[in-house]
Design a protein around this nucleic acid. Structure first.
Lengths: 251, 251
DNA sequence: CATCAATGGAACGTTTTCAGTCCATTGAAC
DNA sequence: GTTCAATGGACTGAAAACGTTCCATTGATG
């Protein structure tokens, strides 16, 4: 961007890690956050979002701006909004899928996400297994497991993400949980861009159950290993698609 | 916050992972980012910041807002600003230290940061050692090592952070690098809040050199182990101070 | 059927932020 | 010592975002 007449105003890669203080206007950022919340399963399919006044405060944004964002998501059919008491914004049961196709030039991005996942997710599983859990934590974990078990194909991805994030939240580190959420969101974005059908849901189901057992049983080592194996499936899927694309491409 | 008359407007912890779309106004966020950049060593002691026009664009903020932030940091003696060509904003050689003391009630925060560090930093070191590095990457790594070796005590922390982040940037995952930067910033914040003098700099120096050797030598396993041992020092320091505090406290 | 509390909907004046423009200062290069 | 290009400094009008207030709608409750 901002390339004027052959005079590239490129940002020094040295300052990339500084991160933007503002990634866009308040409206765009709010849409982004909400969308992320939906994809990650923080707002599960069919669930009601918090009231506008609360949500606006939670997002650090004015209600007017939030309302614009909500309207946008309604227009895009991610939400349906109902008025009156007991009304609110509800997550669509089967949200629209993006059709943007993953190209070979995204190789870097894919490797980024896969590497990041492979670091934070197994570590989170192991750390969760190493923690002493409260009864509430155990039930929330099992609830998340059941939810993803009973999910329809259209609802699977966010509920899957929710389970993984739930595991990370059993950890004494909020930052680690946030990192897993980030990894999940990024993975979901990649998966959205692959034309393949979701397969192996039954297999994932077994793996999920094994991971949860290891965590509840307090077995960090096997929780880590099981999580690594669980991730391997998606890793192969993404790498495989990318490799296939690369062959097709002529430069 | 926002507790009115016994009616707590607490945010449901369930929505914490959503993260705020806006953490404050543009001015505040800009000050925060710049401060972070200084503490992390992205802007090393004595170094010149990018020109206002560039920096503003990099931060996604208007030049006016950026200038307000810079003026604030100058007032707080983090920066000195000079006009004219070859002028600019320079990082103070010995920035002011915060005096806020770390108390026993921050136990959660400390465990959060320590756990997060212990996950991302050794993983980054191992992954860096596993990568095939370009000549430029090798020299930048050695440069960072030399810089921290020659640092005065006042400049040590940011240059230390810079080395660790440099290691993480050898990794194929930008997200992992960002995570290490986050961990480093959080650690630095904690360290700012304990009254102990920095000790063991010589010992750290040896460890740094060993880690860099392992990375350049392509030995992931020992890079990971060495990094874990390196982190252990600070971990003990922070935990130890916290334990000492707890005994002193009467509730 | 009437009430009512919780919610979304809409309008308004204020503050913040932005983009653009021009000025002021400095030190290197010649 | 003159020139000049890169930089910080300052101003202005427009746009965005905010905080607040009041209105409209709904369905559970009695």
């Amino acid at each position: 961007m901002a390339t004027i007449d052959g005079t590239p105003t490129e940002i020094d890669p040295k300052y990339r890690l500084l991160g933007m203080a503002r990634k866009g206007n308040a409206f765009e950022e709010t849409v982004e956050q909400l969308l992320r919340g939906i994809k990650i399963g923080i707002f599960a399919p069919g669930e009601r979002l918090p009231a506008e006044r609360e949500l606006a405060e939670a997002l650090g944004v004015s209600r007017a701006t939030l309302r614009d964002a909500l309207a946008e998501l309604q227009k895009a059919q991610y939400l349906t909004i109902q008025r009156g008491r007991y009304g609110g914004a509800f997550v669509t049961d089967t949200p629209p899928a993006r059709s943007e196709i993953l190209g070979w030039q995204d190789h870097e991005l894919v490797e980024d996400v896969l590497a990041f996942r492979s670091v934070v997710e197994p570590a989170a599983a192991a750390m969760a297994a190493d923690s002493s859990l409260t009864a509430a934590q155990r039930t929330s974990l099992l609830d998340a497991l059941n939810a993803v078990s009973n999910a329809t194909p259209g609802q699977y991805r966010p509920l899957d993400a929710r389970l993984h994030i739930c595991i990370a939240e059993l950890t004494p580190s909020r930052r680690l949980a946030a990192a897993v959420a980030e990894a999940r969101a990024a993975t979901s974005d990649l998966l959205d861009r692959i034309p393949f059908l979701e397969r192996n849901i039954e297999h994932s189901e077994e793996q999920h159950r094994a991971i949860v057992d290891a965590i509840l049983g307090g077995n960090p080592a096997s929780a880590r290993t099981l999580m690594e194996e669980h991730l391997a499936g998606t890793t192969a899927l993404l790498r495989g698609f990318l490799a296939g694309e690369r062959q097709t491409h002529n430069d």
